[in-house]
Structure formats: structure tokens, C-alpha cells
């Protein structure tokens, strides 16, 4: 459902505080650098303001934001493929440096996976979404999500063992 009246400023601030980290994590893992992740998060919240959707439950709001952020990331990746502006080396080396070196290895391994696996792995293992909910968010069947989770998990472990252990 969409409401035409703009959201008050304090509500926007509250939403950014509530979901900002979660969306930033998702966008960062999808896009591989802080600047692009910031842009995607910003565009997601701006879409939220422009469309002013109303939700019955907070979970629906969160799912809407995730879906929108995922689409913004895909737009950014598409644009990057069409107009590459940074070297592949830059894409491989994330600007974010987690304090723990094993965390850094896991993150790098995760970010080296194809985008479709990254998304389901984060939603399931980090944001603890159920397979059915992920299926709704990414508009796939639950069995397709299960397959992606299995394959993504296997690829991630292989990559991590091979390059970071």
C-alpha cells in the first residue's frame, strides 16, 4: 500500500537508524566497496521516502527495504558492467578492513562468489531469514533458494579453504 503524504523527518531518521546497518552490510557485500554501498543505501531510503509505502508489520517494512536495496545493487552492478570505471583489482580488494584476519578472509571469500549466492547467504545466515521469506524477497521458489544456499555454502567453503587457510 502506498501513501502520498511525505514521511516526517524524525521518522526517516529513525528508519535509517533501525535498518541502516543491515542494508549497508547487504549493499557492501553485494557491491564490494563503501562508496557504492553508501549510494545504494541512500537510494533505497530515498525510494522509501518517494513511494511512502505503508506496512502492517515491521517485518514487511524490512523486507521491502531489502528488496529495494537488492534492486539498487543490481542496477549498480549492471551500470558497472556497462561502464567499468574502476579496475578489477579494486573490485577484488574491499576497502572495508574487519579487525579479525579470519573475518577478513571469510568476507573476501564471500564477496568473490557470484551475486546470487551472496544475497541468499547473507539473508539466511546473517539476517536469519527463512527460506520461504527469502524466496518472496528474491522472487524465486523456495527450492531454488535452497539450491542456492547449498551451492553457495559449498562454494564459500571451497574458496575459503583454498585461499585463506
Amino acid at each position: 500500500m502506498y501513501d502520498s503524504s511525505p514521511r516526517p523527518v524524525d521518522e526517516v531518521e529513525a528508519v535509517v537508524h533501525r535498518y541502516g546497518d543491515m542494508l549497508f552490510r547487504l549493499c557492501y557485500v553485494m557491491l564490494g566497496n563503501e562508496a557504492d554501498a553508501e549510494d545504494a543505501v541512500q537510494e533505497t531510503f530515498i525510494s522509501y521516502l518517494r513511494n511512502t509505502p505503508t506496512f502492517k508489520e515491521a517485518e514487511h517494512e524490512k523486507a521491502w527495504l531489502i528488496t529495494t536495496a537488492k534492486n539498487k545493487c543490481r542496477d549498480a552492478l549492471r551500470l558497472r558492467r556497462r561502464r567499468p570505471q574502476i579496475s578489477l583489482e579494486d573490485l577484488r580488494e574491499p576497502s572495508y578492513e574487519p579487525p579479525d584476519s579470519s573475518d577478513s578472509g571469510i568476507l573476501e571469500a564471500l564477496m568473490s562468489l557470484p551475486e546470487k549466492f551472496r544475497l541468499v547467504l547473507i539473508l539466511h545466515y546473517v539476517d536469519e531469514y527463512r527460506v520461504e521469506d527469502i524466496a518472496r524477497i528474491i522472487e524465486k521458489t523456495p527450492s531454488a533458494v535452497k539450491m542456492r544456499l547449498q551451492k553457495g555454502r559449498r562454494l564459500l567453503e571451497e574458496k575459503y579453504r583454498k585461499e585463506y587457510l
Binding site: 549497508f24 568476507l107 564471500l110
Partner: peptide
């Protein structure tokens, strides 16, 4: 471990 690694990513105050 995967969850911890990803949850370490946080939006900085500046970006927020």
C-alpha cells in the same frame, strides 16, 4: 563465523 564476519560491517556515523 560467517555471521560475525558480515556483522562486523557497520555503517560509519559519517555515512549515516
Amino acid at each position: 563465523e560467517l555471521k560475525r564476519a558480515v556483522q562486523n560491517i557497520k555503517m560509519s556515523d559519517e555515512i549515516r
